[in-house]
Structures are given as structure tokens and as C-alpha cells.
Design a protein around this nucleic acid. Structure first.
Lengths: 180, 180
DNA sequence: ATGTATGTACAGTATATACTTTACGGCTAA
DNA sequence: TTAGCCGTAAAGTATATACTGTACATACAT
């Protein structure tokens, strides 16, 4: 009997491991590396907050990797540090608001890109228009019109993208599609 | 005068180059590498469909890189192959539906991840429930309940994510936020 | 104050990725 | 059929990234 319960524990670990491996594999989409994904999964299913040494042992990796990995996960608001009196080591536990994680990852990544691109497009547009003032060669003028068309299209797209991002940023998305 | 027009052409190239560099830099979000982003930009602003040799010269990179790069861009529906009678070399031009590109990239990347994770979560849930049948140790039973809670939360999240993806997949998003 | 334990910076190493060179199969035109 | 060109597969090389070991700075306990 004792033996059987032990067996269940092993199988449970295996089942957890399998699940963690899958979500870790896909966590690249959140800008989280594969190994950091496994780190998150490990902390998620831990029964208690973990120390860096715990993680190091659980994953068979250096403590340094755990340190840098945890910092990345904290930056992404996926884990949080907790204090327990009498414990000197830093303790970490998962911060499980996946809806929030999704939106903030989505927003952070796209917001910056959209802003950069929009700025670059505006600048390009200005320059193209300035060139158009000076241009005399009909062919060159034609080319410039085409370029302006493209950059205007881009600007429209960025405006649209901005709206999409805003829906996630403001949380409107949760009114449109309520969390389960 | 001739000299000045030439100067404009140079400045135009520089302005294009600048814009292309920026969008290429951020194109990593679309799963497109930096250099493939520049490749796309080059094709986008080309006045005529380009051959691999054209691109090779324009970017100062090997033809092989252009070949693989173009294939990646074609897979992402960002460039298309065109035929011109009398031209033996393959010709490529940009396929400029950025709205479509965005949604299909978004959908393709997240759809697969969501499906994988959902499948893994269902499987984990089944296993956890099976273990719960066999378990006798109260502590183990408690652990299993916690695990089930987590996996149920995950399943809810995947359901939500599925809905979000569906909005982009079906094009509903364009009714909610019309393209400019 | 001083010894000890803990997290992290730094440098070195291994692995993965991007790119190039070379070589070849397939298509086209004579 | 064959000569020549085009696109790509394969192998090799360089660069970037991920990970480790060591060594140090900081904070706590005595």
C-alpha cells in the first residue's frame, strides 16, 4: 500500500512534468524562453514557495540560471517574491493571472513596435513629400508618388493596430470576451 | 540640375532604407527575422518585381539567403511569385495586405500553441482525476486537488484565448475595428 | 565586529542560429 | 539531345545566445 502511494506520487510528477513541458514549449510566444517556461511551470505546481536552490535542484540547472530566469519571469509579472519570517533565502511563487499576463505581454510587445513604426513612417512621409517638392524628373516624381502611397497605407495600418492594442490595454477585451 | 536630381535619388534611397530598417527591426514580432524583414522592405519599395539576383545585389547577401528568406516570406503570405513572359528567373513582389498578414500571423502562432496546451491540460486533468481515485494519503489527495484547480484554471484560460483567436480568425475583428 | 550564508556580476564554454560556398538536379532553348 | 542557367540542398563557418563555475558584495546572525 505504502508502495502504491509512492507510485502515484511518481506518476503525478510525470504527469505534471508532461504538462509543464508542453506549456513551456509554447511559452516562447510570450517572449519567455523554453527553460524559463519550465521554471515557471515548476514554481506553478510547487506546493510551497520555492528558493533558488529548490529550483536549481528541481531542474538540475545552475543557481545562476535560476536567478536570471526568475528575474525575467518577475519582469513579466509571472512570479512574485514572497517573504516568510525566519527564512533568509528569497522565496518565489507563481503569480497566476494568465489573462493579465497575456494582455500585458501582447500590449508591451506590440505597443513599442507600433509606435516605432508609426514614428518612422511619419518621418519617411515628411521626407518623401519634401523630395517631391524638389523633384523634376517625371519618373522620379512617379516613384515618389508610389512611395507615398505605400507609406500612407502603412500609417493607416498602424492606426488600426493602435486601436487593436488599445482594446487589450484598456481591458475592453474582457468586456467583449469575458474570462471564464 | 542633373546632379541635383541624382542627389534626390540618393536621399530617397537613404530615407527608404531608414524606414525599412525600422519596420524590419520590429518584424521579429511577426516571426520574421531582421534580415528577412529588410528583404521584405526591399521588395516592398522596389519599383518592379525582383529576382533573387536583384535582391542579392541590393542587400549584399548571398543568393542562397535570398532563396530561403523569400520562401519564409511566401509562407507568411508577405510576398508572392509573379510571372512575366520572357523572363526565366523567378520574380517576386510584395503582397501588401498587412491586415491579413497580422491576423494570419497572430492566428497561426497562437492557434497552435493554444490547441497544444489545451490538449495537454485535458490530458493532465484526466490523469490527475484518475490518481485521485487511487489516492489514500490525505496529503496526496490535497495536493491533487490543488493541481486540479490549477489545470481547471488553465482550461478556462485556453477557452478564453480560443475565443480571442477566433475573432481574428473569422475576421470579426474587422467589424469591430474597421481598417483605415 | 566578524563570520557565514545568499544572490548576482563576470568570464568562459557549449550549443544553436544565420549565413556563405560549393555542388547538383531540373528546366529551357537551341 | 545537349548546353547553359536557375534555384536549392548540403556542408562548413561565423556569430549570437544560453548556460555554468567562480568569485565577490551585501545582509543577517551571533
Amino acid at each position: 500500500m505504502e508502495r502504491e502511494q509512492k507510485n502515484i506520487q511518481d506518476k503525478l510528477d510525470e504527469a505534471r512534468h508532461q504538462f509543464i513541458a508542453t506549456i513551456a514549449q509554447n511559452m516562447g510566444l510570450y517572449g519567455v524562453s523554453d527553460t524559463n517556461g519550465r521554471l515557471y511551470g515548476t514554481v506553478l505546481f510547487a506546493e510551497r514557495p520555492m528558493t533558488l536552490d529548490d529550483m536549481s535542484e528541481a531542474l538540475g540547472m545552475s543557481k545562476m540560471s535560476m536567478s536570471t530566469g526568475i528575474r525575467a519571469l518577475m519582469d513579466a509579472d509571472m512570479v512574485e517574491r514572497v517573504w516568510e519570517k525566519g527564512v533568509r533565502k528569497d522565496l518565489y511563487q507563481s503569480h497566476d493571472d494568465w489573462y493579465q499576463s497575456f494582455t500585458s505581454v501582447f500590449v508591451n510587445r506590440w505597443r513599442e513596435a507600433a509606435d516605432n513604426n508609426q514614428k518612422a513612417a511619419r518621418r519617411a512621409k515628411e521626407e518623401f513629400e519634401a523630395f517631391l517638392e524638389e523633384a523634376e524628373d517625371p519618373y522620379l516624381i512617379d516613384v515618389l508618388h508610389h512611395d507615398l502611397e505605400k507609406v500612407n497605407y502603412a500609417l493607416g495600418y498602424y492606426e488600426w493596430l493602435d486601436e487593436v492594442i488599445r482594446i487589450f490595454e484598456s481591458g475592453e477585451i474582457f468586456a467583449m470576451i469575458p474570462p471564464k
